[in-house]
Amino acid sequence: MKFWFAMFVLLGATATSQAATPAELLAGYRAEAAGSSPGFHPSAQRGAAFYQRNFNVSAKLRSCDSCHSANPMQGGRHVVTDKPIRPLAPAANAERLSDPAKVEKWFRRNCTEVVGRECSAAEKADFVAYLTEGGR
């Protein structure tokens, strides 16, 4: 009985660790950023500027909006392959910002190629704030 209870708790924990709400993700990045700069508060406005910024690192993948379109509520197209990309804003595409591992994977890939380095927790927090609050 004890064993099954432990299994139940374990399975529950595994299941919840895979799913998250955008608010939970935001809280996580906010806490991480506040660790190095106390009083940090995520800003959708800064996130919007980051989303549009031309980093000039990659010849074709210059900014987030190169592929994700100017409006995260709308879909985009991969600038190299032309593959349609579904909207980034959770309000338009409920799959977005729901899986922390997936979010981290795409930050890692896209930040290194577009920004030229990994993104900071503060940048991620601003970005998530923009997609959830301002990206409409």
């Binding site: 990659s58 010849a59 993948l61 190299v80 890692r108 890939r109 896209n110 290194t112 190629e113």
Partner: peptide, 10 residues
Amino acid sequence: LDKHYGDNAS
């Protein structure tokens, strides 16, 4: 995969 035709696909 980290240098995947100009993309990072690691």
